[in-house]
Simulated scan of single mutants.
Amino acid sequence: MVAESGPVHRLAEVFETDRDRLVGRWAELAGSALRGRLTTTELERDLRELYTAIAAVITLDGGLDRSEFTELKAQLADLSRSRARQGFSPSETAAGVFALKQAVSELTENAADPQVFREVLAFSSLLDTLGLWTFETYAAAREEIIREQSEQLLELTTPVVKLWEGVLAVPLVGTLDSARTQVVMEKLLEALVETGSEHAIVDITGVLAVDTQVAQHLLKTVVAARLMGAECIISGIRPQIAQTIVALGIEFGDITTKATLADALRHALRRDGVVVTRTRERTR
């Protein structure tokens, strides 16, 4: 990244002879940007390998698309992913890279050789490019983390529970969309195969609202369960939701619907020949 260089690269010599001093000062400056959430020792460990990778390309011209920058880019990507998972912001992550500018500037500010000045300017441009790359890789890593967390949340909010021998239930809460319907179908079908159950109850007591799209999602789930040989019952049809379904003209056809999960369970047990009776009258 040097516009004009003699046979000896002065800044490269500085990087070699003052390695420990530069890494220590870099870690100190980067730590101030992270507001003490990582110790200087932890930062030095993270930055030492990165320093070696930067030193290896400090004499090169051209952009980051050169093969010589592959190792450096990989280390920056690892650093970005690590900072994203630790909860640091993209600005804090990039600032950690930019901090090397100040460390180098402090060490070379009294150099009388104009070649060093030119090389420091070129190095500053290189760090600008590396900082932007770090910012971009951080954004990609953060999107990946958010996607993973969303998938995990879907798993947690769509449990399949065994109510009785041969009877499964999927209690739904919140909003039902295409992505969540897919998770519901996959988990329900897997549970039907594993348990050999013949009845599946989809309880929508906790679903905020039912519109045409939600109804279509429910019908897909019912059809998927039927293809596995299980009778599917929809429970939790509250009066307000029933009125909405009628107003929208949504037809559930021959799908069994019940007002409560208890009613749906009683229906499934009755289909299996199980009768639930009270042993004594409830006292007031």
Rank of each mutant, 00 (worst) to 15 (best):
A140D: 14
D18S: 14
L127Y: 02
R21I: 08
V274M: 02
R48T: 15
V276S: 05
P239G: 06
Q240K: 09
F123Q: 14
S32G: 06
A111P: 04
A30H: 04
G62I: 01
L72W: 10
L265H: 01
L121N: 09
E49Q: 15
V223I: 12
D78M: 10
E144M: 07
S67W: 08
V274E: 00
L127E: 03
T175K: 08
V170N: 03
R278G: 13
T70R: 14
F135R: 15
T41V: 14
K187W: 01
E92L: 06
L189S: 09
H267D: 10
L130W: 04
A56G: 10
L100T: 03
G174V: 09
A179D: 12
W26L: 06
K258D: 07
I241G: 03
K220V: 08
G166V: 03
V167R: 00
T134F: 00
R83S: 04
Y51A: 04
A12H: 13
T181Y: 07
A225R: 02
V184E: 01
R66N: 12
T244E: 01
I58A: 13
E281I: 04
M185K: 09
A140K: 11
L269W: 03
A27F: 05
R37H: 06
F252L: 15
L219I: 15
T17N: 12
Q243Y: 02
M228F: 09
S178C: 06
L172F: 08
S91L: 14
V214I: 10
L79G: 03
Q115I: 10
P159K: 01
G63V: 02
T108D: 01
F88G: 06
